[in-house]
Structures are given as C-alpha cells and as structure tokens.
C-alpha cells in the first residue's frame, strides 16, 4: 500500500456568493522515494489539495466535505487538531512559496529549528542545538554555527528557503509537501533548491509532493504527474509518458503555450494561447469543465452535457476527456519537444 492515499477528496469553500468547489473529487497516491508533481494554473485547487492533506485549510470558510486522506493506513481527515499536530512537522512536513511569510520574523533561525525538534522529539537543549547546526549544514547553509543566531531577514531568498527546508526535514518526515518552493527565486537559485530537494529526498527516502505551475519544474523533478484543472484531475501519468504523449487537450495546450528556450525559430515561435478562462467554481458546469475552451469539443458532443470520467487510456495513464490526443485520428495537435 502507498504511504499516502488520497481518495475522492472534496474541499469546498462556503462563501456568501455560494459554495466554491475548490477541490472536487481528487484521488492519487504517493510512495516513499517517489515525487508526485501536481501542476496547474492559479485557482485549479492544487494548493488547497495540499492544505487539505495537512489539515491546514481555513475552517471556516473551507471544509473537507468528502473523501479520505489515508496516511500509513490512518485516516487524517477525522483526526483532532491535537492529533494532527503530532503528525504535522513530524511525519508530514510542508514548505511554502514564500519563506518570508512562513518563517517567524521575530525568532532566530536556530530557535525555530530547535522549537520543531523539541516539540516532536524527546531531545535535550544541547542536543537540539547540535542537531540544528547539522541540519543547516545539510541544506547547504555556509557557516551554520553563526547562522543559528540570525533572524530570517538577514538571509537572502535562497538561504531563507534552505532554512525553511531545514525546519521541514528536522524530524525526518516521511512525506514532504513542497508548494511552489522555487517560484519566488531566481533561476540559478531555483536550480540549486530543486537539486537540494532531490538529494534530501533520496537520502531521507521521503515521499514528496511537488506543487507548481511550471511544467519545466515538473520535467526536472517529478516521477509522476497530476494535471489539475478547475478543481479536478484532468490527466495523470508518469512524467516521461506525460511529456511524450500528452492526452488531455488542456495538457497539450499548456505545453503549447510555453515559450521554448531551445527552439531555433526563436522570435518566430508562435505560442498557442488558450482562449477564455477557467469556469467559476460556484455551480460549475455539469459538462466537462474544459469544454468551453477546448479546441476539439463541439456543442453536440456528450462532453458538453456530461462530465467525462477519469479513465485509464494506457497502463498508468489516466485522462478525463472525450477527446484525448490518441483518439483524434489525424487531428493530433503537434506539441513541440
């Protein structure tokens, strides 16, 4: 059995305007030593999915209204806040996009690491200090002893992200959830942080969920990929398979919309823009949620009135569409590599 199994997760926001179906029936699993990438654009529900697993959604207005989150055979959605606190930071840890808002600006880096260690492990003050230095060293922060007494604002963006990673791995979590961990960083720093996460995952044999909007980051770091759109999974496949044979029109369009750095046509590249915008998630259409923007759908299709199921089109490759690429004979949209 997989370390983490999410089944038919539904997280809704109860607002004055109506019920927002932010996450609407999401299922996936992650094993130790494996990185699952969740990719999608703003508002697709990828972060809410992560927060739901962690029990960190703001209640109210949000509520998990259905589904299961099975962690090592335990159901997390029914745990009390107290029980969740024992899991969070210990067995499951999370890092966020902006380390400046998730680190406490009034506490030193050292204090914040030691705090986590002593919350979860039976460990003396001296031992915690020693361990904190080791951790800062492990995440590649130079001169860790002197950094221990620094406040977050003294560190650069990349170093802050490393400090946050140090806190996250301090209790040897079995699952690390990284929500846009490199989005605020420059490309050279991003590359270093992704390398670091990869190394740590291997050395700690963690399961990892990597949430990003960037297909490049997915190609770089994920083993398996979930593509989300409007609160649902629209495609799911091993990473190479997904990039070699994208099936869902949305995945194809996302790849076509990306400027290619190694495309020799340079300036003459024409990007495939996706017309329109994602649907409102208050009373979303009963139809396929991508239908209104889909270049292959026509009004007579059943996907204009019925939601397509997520089906296995090839072993391990799932797609939620009436018009997957491999069933569109001769009409295949060319996706440049």
């Amino acid at each position: 059995m997989a370390a983490l199994e999410v089944r038919d997760l539904q997280t809704h926001f109860f607002t004055r305007e109506g019920v927002v179906r932010a996450v609407d029936g999401v299922s996936f699993s992650v094993d130790r030593g494996q990185t699952l990438g969740i990719v999608g654009e703003s508002g697709c529900g990828k972060s809410v999915t992560a927060l739901s697993i962690m029990g960190l959604i703001p209640k109210p207005p949000a509520k998990i209204v259905g589904g299961e989150v099975q962690w090592e055979g335990r159901e997390l959605t029914t745990l009390s806040e107290r029980q969740l606190e024992d899991v969070r930071g210990h067995e499951i840890a999370m890092i966020f996009q902006d380390p400046m808002t998730s680190l406490n600006p009034t506490l030193t880096i050292g204090t914040q690491i030691k705090e986590t260690l002593r919350r979860h492990l039976d460990i003396s003050k001296d031992a915690a200090r020693k361990r904190a230095i080791e951790l800062l060293d492990e995440v590649g922060i130079p001169k860790p002893e002197s950094r221990l007494d620094d406040y977050p604002h003294r560190l650069s963006g990349g170093m802050r992200q490393r400090a946050m990673i140090a806190i996250a791995i301090s209790c040897n979590p079995e699952l690390l959830i990284a929500d846009e961990p490199t989005t605020a960083l420059d490309v050279t720093v991003q590359a270093q942080v992704l390398d670091l996460l990869e190394e740590l995952q291997a050395s700690h044999e963690m399961a990892m969920i990597l949430i990003t909007h960037d297909m490049g980051v997915i190609a770089e770091s994920a083993d398996d990929v979930v593509v989300m759109y409007a609160g649902q999974i629209v495609e799911q496949a091993p990473v190479q398979e997904l990039f070699d044979h994208p099936e869902h029109p949305y995945t194809e369009a996302l790849l076509g919309a990306l400027p290619q750095i190694d495309d020799a046509s340079g300036r003459n590249q024409r990007l495939t823009a996706i017309r329109g915008r994602p649907p409102d998630l208050i009373d979303p259409p009963k139809a396929c949620r991508f239908a209104a923007r889909c270049p292959h759908a026509s009004s007579g299709d059943s996907c204009a009135t019925h939601m397509p199921e997520l089906r296995e089109i090839r072993p391990g490759h799932f797609v939620r569409s009436q018009h997957p690429a491999s069933e569109r004979a001769g009409k295949r949209v060319e996706v440049t590599a």
């Binding site: 490309v187 590359a191 490049g216 190609a219 770089e220 990039f243 790849l255 990306l258 290619q260 590599a337």
Partner: peptide
C-alpha cells in the same frame, strides 16, 4: 543552464 525546460529527458 539553470532554466528548467519541459522535457524530462533533456532535463
């Protein structure tokens, strides 16, 4: 070289 490109093989 730091730019991630959407191709796992090339990456």
């Amino acid at each position: 070289k730091a730019v991630p490109i959407p191709d796992p093989r090339k990456m």
